[in-house]
Design a protein around this nucleic acid. Structure first.
Lengths: 295, 295
DNA sequence: GGAAACCATAGATAACGTCTATGATGGATT
DNA sequence: AATCCATCATAGACGTTATCTATGGTTTCC
């Protein structure tokens, strides 16, 4: 495990181009800094600098490490800032799975806002794992994500939805109700890199000896749908993501579905917010309950 | 500055609920861990645990610190992983300002993909500051962001666009070409928390003694627009974000514009990628040049 | 050729992290 | 009520570490 003071030495060398100037900047002597860099290189297991003719250059490992070192120290600063901030007015911090429909989430929260105009909802995107982690580390209160059988103390089950394949409206297949993998053999595929059924989708095609050409990959579903609408290719999405800019068709034999849930806080809420939380949970259940999204 | 080994002690205490068990988990003795927690509390300047009747509870500061401590150690793990990863096939890492139109960016990249089908483009969202930081720390190659007069070595200037106010189509003002602040005095305001002209927007209304009610705040522009379309309120957006779900009107006297630019790599590209980069820059200039977005 | 600049090593030393031993406190048991 | 047990805090000892000064080795500049 590396030491933060060594990261400071490392960044000082990168910024100054010299061990001697870096030592000045970090208020130690040059031999101390030299030994510190040596120690850091031992900790990470490979050289970070190439010393050549009294000059210092980053190695490939050093270049790769540099943004990470900055991120670590940035997180440390955020940690100190978090401690310094005065407690702000309480808000509801809601995580939302990136693959959820913006429109559906917007409508859900619009209705909630009408019912509870004083509540501030902070919305955070994330992958399943990110949302789970943030619930665990208490940086989120609630999360809308995929249900995987968690107990009722952790999750309020919501509705099911299936996956469909979306295409530009002018696509030759856009009038069809359902197609097979072979129908898409010559088509372009857009990859939503955060799709829950990414590997299933891949297997669906490879099992039928079909290999659509991958032309674009993005974690941002709105961008993926925009790319479909723009005509660059098609992609698999949960049904609720379909909008009027694209055409949805079924994939024969692709029967995967996902069930959503509202994940509950993993810590004891303050007394002042338990009623607010209960109201929020009821609202979500009313709007997105097991019978589907309320129209 | 805090020490990482102390963060490990801290998390062990949180996870086990006890200094003694945390000491076991971190392979030190209980007095060592106790002193370590004391040292960490000195470093951060406030108590993180409340010791009460031989039990340990997180203080408010400790609760606030916990996700940050986890994030720091997570970044350290990412740093180590980054060093361990073998060099992957080179890609073009493009940062895109969160307030850019998904549709416009999608079309830009769709055209590029047609011209250069073999290039993998990784797209990352961020605020201006985040994109600048990531260009600086070399975790992005290019970025599409707001131009603020940077030199040609850093940025390729693109087109201008103005800001407009968007409303749900059925709004009473939606037929008008232009409105004043007073016309919106009783309306609801959605805040795109990453808008470049957030403070100017606030000042526009307060200068005219108007205080629209803030009902929703989100960093996600797609969600903000979905909320407008859902009828919850209106918001200020750059013109290119307007789509058919909403109505755009001008705000009288709100003359702010933004100029976009393609920000260039802040390091020497490898020889193998200089041609690719030049092609990409030309593509962007052709599509989003100073005359506006190519239709 | 000598001076200057810069990184690496050696040895000394103060500071540090950890140990054992023990104290203080409160709850559980008898 | 007395005793035992569990747990955190403190004290002192000690091995290790981070930093210092001194100096060596190499390269560049004048």
């Amino acid at each position: 495990m590396m030491d933060l003071y060594l990261l400071r030495y490392f960044l000082a060398v990168v910024e100054t181009g010299s061990f001697t100037r870096a030592a000045d900047r970090t208020f130690v002597t040059q031999p101390t800094l030299s030994a510190g860099i040596k120690k850091l290189e031992a900790q990470v297991g490979q050289p970070l600098f190439e010393r050549s003719n009294r000059r210092v250059f980053l190695t490939d490992a050093g270049t790769r490490f540099l943004p990470r070192a900055k991120a670590i120290l940035h997180e440390c600063n955020l940690a100190m800032q978090a401690l310094e901030e005065t407690a702000t007015a309480p808000v509801l911090r809601l995580g939302v799975l990136t693959t959820l429909s913006n429109r559906a989430v917007g409508e859900l929260l619009a209705r909630y806002k009408k019912a509870e105009p004083k509540v501030t909802v902070e919305v955070y995107d994330g992958t399943e794992q990110e949302l789970t982690n943030r619930l665990d580390d208490r940086s989120l209160d609630y999360a809308l994500s995929v249900y995987r059988g968690e107990g009722e103390d952790k999750a309020l089950p919501l509705f099911d939805e299936k996956y469909v394949f979306i295409l530009p409206p002018e696509h030759r297949l856009s009038g069809k109700r359902s197609v097979g993998a072979a129908d898409l053999a010559e088509d372009y595929m857009i990859v939503r890199s955060r799709c829950e059924v990414l590997s299933e989708t891949s297997r669906y095609f490879t099992d039928q000896n079909v290999r659509p050409r991958l032309v674009y990959r993005t974690p941002n579903d709105s961008r993926a749908i925009a790319m479909v609408a723009a005509g660059i290719g098609g992609t698999v999405v949960p049904e609720s993501l379909v909008d009027e800019r694209v055409t949805a068709i079924d994939l024969s034999g692709f029967d995967y579905k996902r069930k959503l849930a509202l994940f509950r806080p993993r810590y004891q809420l303050a007394a002042a917010t338990t009623q607010l939380a209960a109201d929020f949970e009821r609202h979500v259940e009313n709007c997105w309950g097991v019978t589907g999204i309320m129209q």
